[in-house]
Design a protein around this nucleic acid. Structure first.
Lengths: 210, 210
DNA sequence: ACAAAGAATGAATAATGATTCACTACTTAT
DNA sequence: ATAAGTAGTGAATCATTATTCATTCTTTGT
């Protein structure tokens, strides 16, 4: 009875774990899950490959955790935008814009979260992610319909279309613009591209020219 | 000087090649490019793995060819629907419906063509595929704008949104419905799901309630 | 029937990348 | 200082697949 886990050790381990998570996030944001190999992540975090496995059961588990974290952040932003007071359609538009802007700011990560093929455990997280979005957008659409701010429609389906329209708009730019995309990252909040996407989506929802 | 390639042999080879192509198509339609391994394809086509390489330079080349063929078929259908006479907006709607129905009928193949990550040579084909669609839908949208049948908009962007809305609508059903999807394959031409997608898209394009 | 040429074969090889594990180094309590 | 226990290491292993190539089988012209 000599060694007993102490606070100091717990902290150190927690830090290592955090570092691994951050590096994985970084790798995924750079090239998607596909390019995030354990070896690369380990090197980036400054630990041995084996160390990864002291902190995570498997690559799948690690990825699932990354996914959960990244997703939570996105969903929270949208939820915030939807939680304000005022015209429900305006709130919806704001939330969609939020979503589109964030996605276009980090297209590789957005693609990884939305469409990149992943292993089952990660896919499971993705389903929760989708459900979370569905609940948010759908709910907002549904409320708007009840208030006669939107015409009657299949809220779930409309929500899907909206997410798809935005996703596709960024998958296109993905192959050529990957490198340059990072440059124009955080400067302008008023991209005409976003405007035209949002315009399409809002028209799709409202059936009203804007 | 004994053996000289004869007509009979040429035919036999051509048949083998065709069989390989068909089986590859089948495998891709079943589980995407990812699940189409050379061994599986060879087994399905009733030849040895090595034989595949007598007909195709590499897996990438084979896939590129499959992609080209499948794509050509899809694009042709849409082109046909767009080539008719009459109200350009109606033609557009018909073409979109065509596209959506076909995609939802074979969602795995559609996903493979639209969004599955693939090797560079295949990705190159995908770019051509995208360009072909862009040219079709965009052109139609552009013409409609000129005739004042559609409000002024970024035709390229709208086309992207439309493709995305449809694609996302089928990616959702993909994971759960894969198996059952095949069953309801070719029966009904009037799916309410398609209706609501098309409704959203047309409203997105026109800004008019329908 | 025979020999020359090509086609087909599939076991062996190569390449990639996740995971393990025998070992070392470090922490802690006595 | 020492022993007991834990964390970290990274080369070795395992698994998966594309690709090769020495060998066998077929076809063809004489």
């Amino acid at each position: 009875m000599a060694y007993r886990e102490t606070e100091k050790m717990r902290n150190r381990k927690a830090e290592a774990r955090k570092r691994i998570i951050e590096c994985t996030h970084e790798c995924v944001a750079e090239g998607g899950f596909r390019s995030a190999q354990i070896t690369r992540i380990a090197a980036c975090a400054g630990v041995a490959t084996g160390t990864i496995y002291r902190h995570f059961e498997s690559k799948e588990d690690l990825f699932a955790e990354i996914f959960r974290i990244a997703t939570q952040r996105e969903v929270n932003r949208v939820a915030e935008a939807l939680a304000t007071e005022g015209d429900p359609v305006v709130r919806l538009e704001t939330a969609l814009r939020q979503f589109a802007e964030r996605a276009l700011r980090g297209p590789v990560m957005a693609w990884a979260l939305i469409a990149e093929p992943v292993d089952p455990k990660v896919e499971e997280e993705r389903l929760k992610f989708r459900r979370a979005y569905a609940e948010l957008f759908e709910q907002a659409i549904r409320e708007s319909i009840e208030e006669d701010s939107l015409p009657v429609q299949d809220a779930r389906q409309s929500s899907t279309c909206v997410v798809g329209a935005i996703a596709e708009s960024l998958v296109g730019p993905l192959s050529p613009a990957q490198a340059e995309g990072a440059d124009q990252a955080d400067k302008n909040d008023h991209d005409p591209l976003v405007d035209s996407i949002i315009c399409f989506c809002m028209q799709g929802l409202t059936g009203t020219r804007r």
